[in-house]
């Protein structure tokens, strides 16, 4: 086989089998973490800090939208989960959690 073909073959193996294997193992381990949190405390917070910032921004910009109430409900669900739970699925700063207010 030519050097170029060998390089392409190795890149393909890494880009496909490598990525797929890492994704599978990581996904299964994260699911295990979620299950542990559910067993321990009955649930966990559904959104990451970044995702929550997007949610806050949406509510701020679309306060009168017909979907605003649904978004506020989701925000409240997140706030309640963060205050109720002692362990978190995502990484949070204590100050971020304490500064969360009802919208």
């Amino acid at each position: 086989m030519s050097i170029a073909a060998i390089i392409v073959m190795i890149v393909c193996i890494v880009a496909l089998w490598g990525v797929a294997s890492v994704a599978l193992v990581y996904s299964l381990s994260q699911e295990e973490r979620k299950l542990q949190l559910i067993k321990k405390q009955g649930g966990f917070e559904p959104y990451s800090p970044q995702a929550l910032r997007d949610l806050d921004r949406w509510i701020e910009q679309n306060n009168t939208s017909e979907h605003a109430q649904e978004m506020r409900n989701v925000h409240e669900e997140q706030r309640t989960a963060l205050q109720k739970c002692t362990s978190y699925f995502y990484t949070w700063n204590r100050s971020d959690i304490e500064s969360l207010k009802e919208i």
């Binding site: 996904s27 959104y47 970044q50 995702a51 997007d54 979907h67 978004m71 699925f89």
Partner: peptide, 19 residues
């Protein structure tokens, strides 16, 4: 798409999906 990404796609996500 913006609302779906915020409400559903990034909910419980192992990876954050940007805008």
């Amino acid at each position: 798409a913006n609302r779906l990404r915020i409400l559903s796609l990034n909910r419980g996500a192992d990876l954050y999906v940007p805008k």
